[in-house]
Computed example of a mutant assay.
Amino acid sequence: MASTPPPMSPSSTGLRVDAERNRQRIVTAAREVFAELGLDVPMEDIARRAGVGVGTLYRRYPTRAGLIAAAFEAKMNAYADAARQALTDPDPWHGFCGYVEQICAMQACDRGFTTVLTMTFPTAKQFEAARDRAFADFTTLIERAKAAGKLRADFVTEDMPMFLMANAGVLTATTDAAPDAWRRLVGYLLQACAASTAQPLPDPPRPRQMYKAMLRAARRQRPSHKP
């Protein structure tokens, strides 16, 4: 009498081993494709890169937003860790400049992350928790650099997403022809942040205004094909 094969063992995530393997392949493929081509790549292309059927992809990630959050979770954690690490720098100004440069470099290395930094994912709790942690640490970093007399007194947290949007625009326009042009932009921005050379600026945008701008930027990146 033939024996009945044992059921597939569950993985640490609660999925069967084969299902978890497919999940990992999908996330890895999405991370690679988003980094290379941006977030508007057809889901079918991601499934093909992962070596799974498109139905399998949609069962695991019914929405594009869910797949994006899964693909960039590790990078968002690195984003948050960069702010925490900057706080350990004994020179607050050096820590501030190093953080801005590092985040802009993360954008330059990953076309998808360029857009993710200006998007929100309300249903991805861990993803948004990492973003919140980064924001809190960056706020502290700003306060330390100002207290040291190095960062201009009128710098506000809303300036950082504005920097990222500016950097994203330069990257989009110059990546193929002048891939290092973004470094010059960041250099200009950091020089403008120095207290020693600060000149009066117009009032900054309010937090709600920047939030609306981020949502608008995300909508512009939203693909017209199936989510």
Rank of each mutant, 00 (worst) to 15 (best):
Y79P: 00
A153C: 03
E32L: 05
A134L: 01
M119G: 01
L39E: 00
A70I: 10
G98K: 05
F127T: 11
F72S: 11
R84M: 12
L117C: 06
V156F: 02
V116T: 01
E44D: 08
T115V: 13
F72Y: 15
L67C: 08
V116N: 02
A148G: 09
A78C: 08
A35Y: 05
L151I: 09
V33E: 07
A82D: 11
P92F: 08
F121R: 06
A124S: 13
N77T: 11
A173S: 12
Q85I: 13
I68M: 14
E101I: 11
A130D: 12
R144G: 04
A134W: 01
R31K: 11
R31F: 00
L67N: 08
R31V: 00
F113A: 11
A173D: 11
F135A: 14
V116C: 02
A168E: 13
M119N: 02
M43L: 15
A35K: 10
M162A: 14
E128K: 08
R64L: 13
E73W: 06
E32V: 07
L37G: 09
M43D: 03
D154E: 12
K125C: 00
A82P: 06
T88W: 03
F127Y: 15
A35Q: 12
F96R: 08
A71L: 06
L171T: 08
T123N: 12
D137T: 03
P122I: 07
V100A: 14
R84I: 11
Q85T: 15
L151V: 09
R49T: 10
C109G: 15
T123K: 14
V52Q: 05
A70T: 10
A145E: 01
V100S: 10
R111I: 09
K75H: 09
A129E: 13
V54C: 08
T114C: 15
V170K: 11
C109H: 15
F96C: 02
A69C: 10
P42F: 01
A69Q: 11
L67P: 02
R133N: 02
M76K: 10
K150V: 00
Y61L: 06
A47G: 05
R60Y: 06
R133V: 05
E158F: 00
I142L: 13
F121A: 05
G51T: 06
I68C: 08
G95Y: 05
E158P: 00
Y99N: 12
L39V: 09
A30Q: 04
A71D: 07
P161T: 04
A153H: 13
R48G: 00
D91T: 04
A80G: 09
F121I: 03
D81F: 01
L164A: 10
D159H: 13
Y61T: 04
L87R: 13
A130L: 03
R131C: 01
F155V: 11
Y61C: 06
T63S: 14
L164T: 05
F155N: 03
A153P: 00
A108W: 01
F138V: 09
P62I: 06
T172F: 07
D89L: 04
P42R: 02
R48L: 11
T56F: 06
P42E: 01
